[in-house]
Amino acid sequence: MEKRAGGITSHLFGGFCSLLRRCMFGVLSVGPVPNHIAFIMDGNRRYAKKRNMAEGDGHKAGFSALLSILRYCYELGVKYVSVYAFSIDNFKRRPKEVQSLMDLMREKIEEILEQESIVNEYGIRLHFIGNLQLLTEPVRVAMEKAMRVTAHNNQRVLLICIAYTSRDEMVHAVQESCKDKRNEVQASKVDKGSNGVIAKIDEDLKRNDIDTRAQHSGNDHQNENKDCCSSNSSSSVLTGVEGAGDNYREAKSTPCSGVVDRIEESSYKEDELPTIKLVDVEKNMYMSVAPDPDILIRTSGETRLSNFLLWQTSTCPLYSPAALWPEIGLWNLVWAVLNFQRHHSYLEKKKKQS
Rank of each mutant, 00 (worst) to 15 (best):
E2A: 00
K3C: 04
R4H: 14
G7F: 10
S18I: 05
S18A: 12
L20D: 09
C23L: 13
V27A: 08
V30R: 05
V33C: 08
P34F: 03
H36I: 07
H36K: 06
M41F: 00
D57P: 00
H59I: 09
K60M: 05
F63V: 14
A65T: 09
I69F: 03
K79Y: 03
Y80R: 09
N90K: 03
N90L: 11
V98E: 03
D103H: 08
R106P: 07
E121M: 01
Y122D: 12
F128C: 11
L135G: 10
T136R: 13
A142C: 00
M147Y: 01
M147Q: 15
L159F: 08
L159T: 11
C178K: 01
V185L: 00
V185S: 02
V185I: 02
G196C: 14
G196N: 13
A199P: 07
K200Q: 15
A214Q: 10
G218M: 14
Q222Y: 15
C228M: 14
N232W: 14
S235Y: 13
S236M: 15
V237R: 08
L238T: 06
Y248Q: 11
K252M: 12
G258V: 04
V259I: 15
V260I: 14
E264V: 07
E264Q: 03
L273W: 12
I276T: 08
I276L: 09
V279T: 12
M285I: 09
M287L: 12
P291M: 03
R298T: 12
E302P: 04
N307A: 07
F308C: 03
W311M: 01
T313M: 00
T315E: 13
P317I: 06
L318C: 04
A322T: 12
L324Q: 05
L333M: 13
V334K: 07
A336Y: 01
Q341L: 06
R342M: 02
H344L: 06
Y346K: 14
